[in-house]
Write a protein that binds this DNA or RNA. Structure first.
Length: 468
RNA sequence: GGCCCGUUCGUCUAUCGGUUAGGACACAAGAUUUUCAUUCUUGGAAGAGGGGUUCGACUCCCCUACGGGCUGCCA
């Protein structure tokens, strides 16, 4: 019901971390944020969460931008687009996070922790031994350090982090727009780290500070964040800020039910682009993973999705990425594309397949070939790959078909066809068909006996557009 | 181990207490077609299990099972 706070247009963000390519799960999260913002006349912000120095990959950033643009998910604010709440790279906002951490320190809501990584590691080992019977996580060792002690450690330049002081036994509740009310006991929560020893904020701090400062009203993110949400609520409370509304999206799984990855179902958005999928098809397919407009509607433009989109209709259940259905849907969109709009892509695929430029000089001819193959293709790549024999003689003949049609009995048939073909005037569709039908009738055989061997000889394959 | 989330055809889903549980993809069969594809027709295919609540549960509640997430100075 209350998708929005009364009347105020929502502000949402997609906040990827540049640690790898943009996968289809991320793209779907971006899409839902986009749809939600557009549906309610709000804003869609792109923010880059590059606070992990160790996992940062420079190429990932370009991939994310390219992927979102290819899909047509234009952000209203963010890198390249600008906006009032910038900068939109968290790595450029570290002073801000540090200031906020200091604020919490001063208010006694956070504390410095000087524990070494070794101590924490052995702590975890110990807890594992006792099966984590009672409570897990940090043992709050540094909570009760005296002021003098702290000053001494600081003076000695001891590396340290800043941790949030989590209240003892408190119920922390929030309402998830997709899953309803969710409640945690704060005793379950760790005194989480806000500021790392390298001075960078953790995801939790940066995320909360930015969502607040950027005026984010709705946080729509993957459901792996559910368990972190109570921590975030506690941080909002420590700052005395009102938390945004949360909605956690279901995950997208590989066909085998496992996690989506490079080996299982591509995963990268750009892989789908390279594989010859159309952005509008991928978008439409992704929208239907976890959301349905109701009724039997499936094929929708982005605008139609915007008009129909509501979070109440988003499912809580994980969805399997069924590439077969994506292919079908891509075929539907491919049929709707004009030959002209396909020409540049197909031409470059032909070039990649090794066709020499002169062969591709006649644009009208190229368009004719594309229109011939478009209707029997599902992906852009199919058009290029299956039509090569229109530019060069076949290099090989399809095996089972060759055995079937190139039998000894077929030789006399070719003897009859070849001279007739050579003399055919004019050489066009109707004349050819007339010739074959007439020949077949004279020989007293079905036309197919003539047609199939000819097709195979000319194209090397047994399928494709009609011979004539 | 603890906490949290989830569970309708093989897959994506509709259903918001009363339906012969609908659609789509995939699959199978048939028709059309010189092949393939398209198109058309037809078919099989589902409420995890057990308890409640109710005149009546796929729908609401509880338990179990199974799947997933979190339990990091990763996001």
């Amino acid at each position: 019901m209350a998708d929005c706070k009364e009347g105020m247009p929502p502000v949402v963000r997609f906040a990827p971390s540049p640690t790898g390519y943009l996968h289809v799960g991320g793209a779907r999260t971006a899409l839902f944020n986009f749809l939600f913002a557009r549906h309610h006349g709000g804003r869609f912000i792109l923010r880059i969460e590059d606070t992990d120095q160790k996992r940062y990959q420079p190429e990932a950033l370009a991939e994310i931008f390219t992927s979102l643009k290819w899909l047509g998910l234009q952000w209203d604010e963010g890198p390249e687009a600008g906006g009032e709440s910038g900068p939109y790279f968290q790595s450029q906002r570290t002073a801000l996070y540090r200031r906020h951490a200091e604020e919490l320190l001063a208010a006694g809501k956070a504390y410095r922790c000087f524990c070494s990584e070794e101590r924490l590691a052995s702590l975890r080992v110990e807890q594992e031994k006792v099966k984590m019977a009672q409570g897990s996580g940090y043992d709050r060792h540094c909570r009760c350090l005296g002021e003098a002690e702290i000053q001494a450690l600081l003076a000695a330049n001891t590396p340290h982090v800043v941790r949030l002081q989590v209240p003892d036994h408190r119920s922390v509740a929030f309402h998830d727009l997709i899953r309803g009310d969710i409640t945690y006991d704060s005793a379950q929560l760790d005194d989480l780290v806000l500021l790392k020893s390298d001075g960078f904020p953790t995801y939790h701090l940066a995320n909360v500070v930015d969502d607040h400062r950027m005026g984010i009203t709705h946080v729509l993110r993957g459901d792996e964040w559910i368990a972190s949400t109570p921590k975030h609520i506690l941080i909002y409370e420590a700052f005395s800020w009102a938390p945004p509304i949360f909605a956690h999206m279901p995950v997208i799984l590989a066909p085998d039910g496992g996690k989506l990855s490079k080996r299982r179902g591509a995963a990268s958005v750009l892989d789908y682009q390279r594989a010859g999928f159309l952005p509008e098809a991928l978008l439409n397919f992704l929208a239907l993973l976890g959301w349905a407009p109701g009724g039997d509607r499936e094929i929708m433009t982005l605008d139609e999705m915007v008009a129909a989109f509501t979070l109440e209709r988003v499912q809580a259940k994980a969805a399997v990425f069924d590439e077969t259905k994506l292919e079908w849907m891509n075929g539907v969109y491919l049929q709707g594309r004009s030959v002209d709009s396909l020409l540049p892509d197909v031409r470059s695929l032909w070039e990649k397949a090794g066709l020499p430029p002169p062969a591709l000089a006649d644009e009208d001819y190229l368009k004719k070939v594309i229109s011939l193959f478009k209707e029997r293709s599902r992906k852009v790549g199919d058009i290029a790959a299956n039509s090569l024999y229109f530019f060069s003689d076949p290099q090989a003949y399809e095996e089972p078909a060759a055995r079937k049609h190139f039998k000894a009995e077929a030789l006399p048939l070719f003897d009859a066809i070849l001279p007739a073909l050579a003399g055919l005037q004019p050489f066009n569709h109707d004349a050819l068909e007339g010739l074959y039908r007439r020949l077949a009738a004279e020989l007293g055989i079905p036309a197919g006996r003539l047609i199939h061997p000819t097709r195979l000889a000319a194209s090397g394959v047994s399928f494709g557009p009609g011979l004539f």
